[in-house]
């Protein structure tokens, strides 16, 4: 995981210096560090001249942002309607059992984070799991050990 915060100003500088850039900047920061470090939020507030309270409000409103570091592999189990109907609950539980964490948590070794997401747009292949940017369709319980291993 990167912990070099010196890149923060350059990430912020990619966007116009106005309040409407706030979400886009936070998205880029999230992408770079896998979470929103406090320094980054402060720096963003300062640069855009937006109150820190507004930055924090936005950071906690949207699901895409995480205030704590995430693991190397982000496993997102789709729990959208199509996936729910085709048994995503069992899939989620099996991941929980396998990784010994609940959705929203990260394994102590910082390898895996588990999250649930309401539809990733591959509903025809339900149940769907996303590991980082890759989609896995028609996931069966028997495949979960293997998915945790690779991906």
């Amino acid at each position: 995981m990167k912990q070099d915060f010196t890149t923060i100003p350059s990430i912020i500088a990619r966007h116009p210096r106005k309040a409407s850039s706030l979400i886009m900047i936070l998205q880029d920061i999230q992408k770079e560090f896998n979470y929103l470090p406090e320094e980054a939020m402060r720096k963003t507030a300062e640069t855009l001249e937006v109150p820190m309270s507004k930055v924090y409000s936005v950071a906690t409103f949207y699901n895409a942002f995480s205030l704590v570091p995430r693991g190397e592999k982000l496993i997102r189990v789709c729990v959208g309607t199509a996936c729910h109907i085709r048994g995503s609950k069992v899939i989620r539980e099996q991941f929980e059992n396998e990784l010994k964490i609940k959705p929203g948590e990260t394994t102590p070794d910082m390898k895996y984070s588990l999250e649930v997401v309401g539809c990733v747009g591959a509903c025809a292949m339900a149940p769907v799991v996303m590991i980082n940017d890759k989609y896995f369709g028609s996931v069966k319980t028997s495949r979960i050990k293997q998915l945790v291993g690779k991906g």
Partner: peptide, 10 residues
């Protein structure tokens, strides 16, 4: 003019 506090979460 302070905006010291805000809504958090949703």
């Amino acid at each position: 003019g302070f905006s010291a506090i805000s809504a958090v979460g949703r």
